[in-house]
Nucleic acid binder design. Structure first.
Length: 859
RNA sequence: GCCGGUGUGGCGGAAUUGGUAGACGCGCGCGAUUCAAAAUCGCGUUCCCUCGGGAGUAUGGGUUCGAUUCCCAUCGCCGGUACCA
């Protein structure tokens, strides 16, 4: 079987150019203080979501976003910007650690090997990264500053008055005790029930629980001492400061939804513990206060019972002796279920506690129940139940036969809607609220509660504090110490950073929720007085600030120099364009925004936000229209595409498939299509001589050609506009049209063809540089400036007008470009075909759109 | 359920502020070249048609001289989220 003849020798010149660029550091971008830095140029910072270097290597989804940013980066360079476009590795992570446990190899070894493979693959695609700025989250020089930023969080608190982070030293100066300060640090320790997997020896995120259980791992709820970051303090700013960003509406919505702001009121209920009916010795003695959160304070008169979450701290205290057993059994049953499983139960469940609450608005005694449809983690873990106007309360009341009182009617009339009625309306059966519209009733009730001291206006968020500790080996250790005597935590001195994991033979999970580092006994024994914290940080830590480090990757004095920050960081947001997958819509993008704001508050960054413009590339599906997966056998390996068609073809195809943000299926014949296009460009300029050597075709001539000049300059304009708006598919189609014109022509003026090569260069850098060199040009295309559009070539003496009769196309006529409305009308009416359509009809109206069309309305 | 997106030929997809629907590519058909094929080049390719035209951008309405584009309703698909009080 003979090898198919390649239409152009990409396998020879692509590696050649890649090594040329590498050796000459063609895409090196000097920053402030570095040789060759030009401060007069404007900066443009383009960022890719850096990959996790998995053992599987690149998949076709990676080059999609990376090619898009590469094109923009090359274009902006040609436009005269200082373009920062770096690449790096998000290299901590569970797969490397698990592989290490299996093979006995240190994760650093496998991680390095994977990175080398990823780097090779990316370089084989000809991306113009500045490899001198490469960043690796596992490098000691990087870990140092990740830990340093953590310490900034640890040493800060959130000032509610100023709505910003400030150093805790200010509180010390005010005489706060260490205990008090520990209560407000942005990094704090907290004991809470988490998903703990005894079989895996680590905590899991809520989202991961079902997946691992299905694989046979065990997961239980266990209260553990964990490090948390107080992101909830930033909830409002994370919503407000999202607004001006140039992000897809869907991602903004996702973040807002995740933060989950709702307005309402807190209402305080007095709760009388359940007593034994027979011996009511201490009746009325002890009472408790339970606060509930509601978004509908206007329905308070309709509250007919109260529900506490099973984990609510007062459950045991208020439960009557008679209900003790039932309540305890219910609480135990709930404890064994994850939040997920609780959600899956269709039927409402619950148990009465025997206690009663006093509705503050009317003094009514209402029963207190516990039920798992109330979550401890949201609001206060207790609700007032208004079955007439809440679907869940309604369902519960029906099942347990609890009273239902309607307090909102539909509209202004006293209509009786079918219950539960959850919309707005008019208050009824509600004393002083009667007749008020819902929005007014809310305000009135809140004012009443505040006046009586029974409640306040309250804004509630779904966002939880960020559980920041993991029980893993392959992650940044916390730079913290524990005082053996007092049991208090203190920060490791900054001079001791980075704090790396100790070398360990065995870092398998031990089953101890303090993690595998616990076994490094020498390491944890810091001094006679202190022992080390053994938790490590989650993978998110490194990815929270990598975009900052790229600006000054080698700095050993600070995480980012003032000069680099000042030049590369914007005033409003740091990165100009951020491209990556939608899977990071919430967590990574929220976490990075949070850290950025803290660093901003502490005076290290002038911008409030990390990413100005965000674009999500769409998922690439398999040829069968399904998600690529090994089991379906529809996975496309970029290495194979490069081998068969070349890197330029892969780049071009990924951009030609369709809009960047859209989900789209792969097509090998589509790859062949763009490959044919590149071959066509090649053939315009190059031919094979008798000896099989590639030589200039002779078609590129010195002359001029008015038509081709016009086509070329139209293409310049279209390609430029398309790149600016990230519509790469249409940029390519207009270059295809231009190439078709060149192919059809006898000769192509050299000047025009060189302009065309510049347009194609950001898309297909290897092919265009090779042709450019073959034509005897010595300067690299990528170091030239972007061509100017010659507008004078685009103006026409004569233009085509569309003639419509009653909105239907009937003729096309040629008229002078500066034709008057009257003349255009006349010419249109005179057209023979048009006449046959208006014959015998009355002309009602004639619309003339200059330069476009004439529409004759006749009947 | 809620939130966001989306619906155009056989397929991927084009269409500035409402102004020639189907650019470009794939596939398919025909032709040129070739002993033949591959490759390449050229022509055609939304559907119907009595060759004058007619219909057509998920469906049904509306606004307009004119709607893929704007408005209302309905349906389908994709993504997120889910007892958040």
């Amino acid at each position: 079987m003979s090898e198919k003849r390649k239409p152009y020798p990409f396998d020879e010149f692509e590696p050649k150019w890649q090594s040329h660029w590498g050796k000459n550091k063609t895409y090196r971008t000097p920053g402030p203080g570095e040789e060759g830095f030009d401060p007069s140029k404007a900066k443009y910072y383009i960022l890719d979501m850096f990959p996790y270097p998995s053992g599987a290597g690149l998949h076709v989804g990676h080059p999609e976003g990376y090619t898009a940013t590469d094109i923009v980066g090359r274009y902006k360079r040609m436009k005269g910007f200082n373009v920062l476009h770096p690449m790096g590795w998000d290299a901590f992570g569970l797969p490397a650690e698990q592989y290490a446990i299996k093979t006995g190899q240190h994760p650093r070894v496998t991680t390095e090997a994977n990175i080398a493979n990823f780097r090779r693959q990316l370089q084989a695609l000809g991306f113009g990264y500045d490899w001198d700025r490469e960043v690796n989250t596992t490098d000691p020089g990087y870990v140092r500053w990740t830990q340093w930023i953590f310490l900034q969080l640890y040493h800060s608190y959130f000032c509610d008055e100023e709505q910003k982070a400030k150093p805790v030293s200010e509180l010390e100066a005010k005489g706060w005790t260490q205990e008090q300060i520990d209560e407000v640090r942005l990094a704090f320790i907290h004991e809470a029930p988490v998903n703990w997997s005894p079989s895996m020896g680590t905590v899991l995120a809520n989202e991961e629980v079902e997946e691992w259980k299905a694989k046979g791992e065990t997961v239980e709820r266990r209260p553990l001492r964990q490090w948390m970051l107080r992101i909830t303090k930033y909830a409002q700013r994370l919503i407000d400061e999202l607004e001006p960003l140039d992000w897809p509406e869907s991602i903004k919505a996702l973040q807002r939804n995740w933060i989950g702001r709702s307005e309402g009121a807190e209402v305080v209920f007095e709760v009388l513990p359940g007593t034994q009916t027979d011996h009511s010795e201490e009746a009325g003695d002890a009472s408790f206060e339970v606060t509930v959160f509601t978004t509908r304070p206007d329905t308070l008169f309709g509250a007919t019972y109260m529900v506490l979450a099973p984990e609510h701290p007062l459950v045991a205290e208020v439960t009557s002796p008679e209900q003790k057993e039932a309540v305890a059994a219910y609480v135990a049953a709930c404890a064994s279920k994850s939040d997920m499983e609780r959600g899956l139960d269709k039927e409402k469940t619950g148990v009465a506690t025997g206690a009663f609450a006093i509705n503050p608005v009317n003094g009514e005694k209402i029963p207190v129940w516990i039920a798992d449809y109330v979550m401890m983690g949201y609001g206060s873990g207790a609700i007032m139940a208004v079955p007439a106007h809440d679907e869940r309360d309604f369902e519960f009341a029906k099942k347990f036969d609890l009273p239902i009182i309607q307090v909102v009617s539909e509209g202004s009339e006293d209509l009786s809607p079918s219950l539960p009625y959850t919309n707005q309306g008019t208050a009824i059966n509600s004393g002083f609220l009667d007749g008020l519209k819902t929005s007014d009733a809310k305000k009135t009730m809140i004012a009443w509660l505040e006046e009586k001291g029974k409640g306040t206006r309250k804004v509630q968020y779904k966002l939880r504090d960020w559980l920041f500790s993991r029980q893993r080996y392959w992650g940044e250790p916390f730079p913290l110490l524990w005082d053996k005597e007092t049991g208090r935590h203190v920060a490791l001195p900054e001079s001791e950073l980075p704090l790396l994991q100790p070398e360990m033979e065995d870092f398998k999970p031990t089953g101890d929720p303090r993690g595998p580092l616990l076994n490094a006994t020498d390491w944890i024994d810091y001094s006679p007085k202190y022992t080390r914290e053994t938790n490590t940080m989650p993978q998110w830590a490194g990815s929270c600030w990598y975009y900052l480090r790229y600006c000054d990757p080698g700095n050993t004095e600070f995480f980012l120099s003032k000069e680099a920050e000042d030049y590369w960081g914007g005033d409003e947001a740091f990165v100009d364009l951020y491209v990556g997958g939608t899977e990071h819509a919430v967590l990574h993008l929220l976490y990075a925004r949070f850290w950025h704001k803290v660093l901003h508050d502490l005076g290290y960054l002038k911008s409030k936000e990390p990413f100005k413009k965000l674009v999500n590339q769409g998922l690439i599906l398999g040829e069968d229209g399904q998600k690529m997966s090994k089991s379906l056998g529809n996975v496309v390996n970029p290495d194979d595409v490069v081998e068969n068609y070349g890197a330029d073809s892969l780049r071009l195809y990924e951009m030609f498939m369709g809009p960047l943000e859209q989900v789209k299926p792969w097509s090998m014949s589509g790859v062949e299509g763009v490959h044919r296009f590149l071959a066509k460009v090649w053939r315009v300029a190059v031919r094979e001589d008798g000896e099989g050597v590639w030589v200039p075709s002779g078609k590129i001539a010195e002359g001029e050609d008015r038509e081709l000049a016009k086509t070329t300059h139209q293409t310049v304009k279209k390609v430029q506009e398309a790149i600016e708006s990230l519509r790469f598919n249409t940029a390519i189609s207009s270059m295809m049209e231009c190439t078709n014109a060149y192919t059809a022509a006898q000769e192509v003026p050299r000047g025009l063809f060189l302009i065309f090569l510049k347009l194609l260069n950001p898309f297909a850098p290897h092919l265009t540089e090779e042709i450019n060199a073959l034509l005897g040009e010595s300067e690299l295309l990528s170091e030239q400036s972007w061509p100017e559009v010659d507008e004078s070539l685009l103006v026409e003496a004569e233009i085509q007008l569309i003639v419509q009769v009653n909105g239907k196309l009937r003729a096309r006529i040629m008229v002078p470009a500066d034709v008057s409305k009257e003349d255009a009308e006349k010419a249109a009416l005179a057209e023979g075909h048009v006449q046959s359509f208006i014959e015998g009809k009355t002309l009602r109206k004639i619309i003339v759109v200059p330069g476009k069309l004439v529409n004759i309305v006749a009947s």
